[in-house]
Each structure stands twice: as structure tokens, then as C-alpha cells.
């Protein structure tokens, strides 16, 4: 899937995260993570985001994660929502798991 336009998903409430994605200017994939729990979980959050981007086939773009202590499942869901919105693709809701 492609990051075709700027989009956003999530909130900055506790236990949630805000995901902002935008097209890359130079075809690279950049992930920036800012977290309330950076010291303990920063690396794990980044790994989860990269894994989700891989699964969605995202090869390039700028992804900014502002995390307020979200669980992995929340992180995956918010990343997926931001990418789906950004790709402009028709969403087949029944296929989302």
C-alpha cells in the first residue's frame, strides 16, 4: 500500500497514540517515535510500527508516532487506519482483522 497523501489516525489520550503519515520527498521510509514510555518501550514500539508497515507493504513515507502508552494492538490498528486513509484505497471492511 502507498502513502499517497497526508493523513492522521488516533488521539493523544492516555493509552492511545496519534499516527501522522505523509508522502516522502525522497522515496525513503522514515519512522519517528515519541513516547511517554520511550525509555522502556521506544524500541519495541518502533519494531511494531515497522512490522505493521511491512505487513501493509508500505515502502516509503514519513510516519510520526506520538505515543501515550498504547498497547501493541492499538499501535497496529492506528497505523493501519492512517495508512488506509492515506492510500485512498476502497476499504473492504470485512477483510480487516
Amino acid at each position: 500500500m502507498n502513502i499517497a497523501k497526508e493523513s492522521i489516525a488516533g488521539t493523544l489520550e492516555s493509552n492511545d497514540l496519534l499516527v501522522k503519515v505523509s508522502p516522502s520527498l525522497d522515496a525513503s521510509l522514515e519512522v519517528h517515535v515519541i513516547s511517554e514510555v520511550m525509555y522502556q518501550f521506544g524500541a519495541q514500539i518502533e519494531a511494531t510500527v515497522h512490522d505493521e508497515l511491512d505487513r501493509l507493504g508500505v515502502k516509503s513515507g514519513v510516519v510520526i508516532i506520538e505515543d501515550k502508552g498504547a498497547l501493541d494492538c492499538t499501535i497496529r490498528a492506528r497505523v493501519e487506519a492512517a495508512i488506509l486513509r492515506s492510500s485512498g484505497a476502497e476499504i473492504d471492511w470485512s477483510r480487516l482483522s
Binding site: 497526508e6 493523513s7 492522521i8 488521539t11 493523544l12 489520550e13 501522522k20 505523509s22
Partner: peptide
Amino acid sequence: ESISLKVVSEVVHLAYERGHAH
């Protein structure tokens, strides 16, 4: 009650819908 956070969050999402991301 974090109402301020919610209202700012709503306005940011609205801005994105209108094509203003930055």
C-alpha cells in the same frame, strides 16, 4: 476533564480532512 485535548484533537482531524496537515 481533558476536554481541551479532545477539542484540539477534533480540530486537528478536521484540518486534515480539509487538506491542511501542517
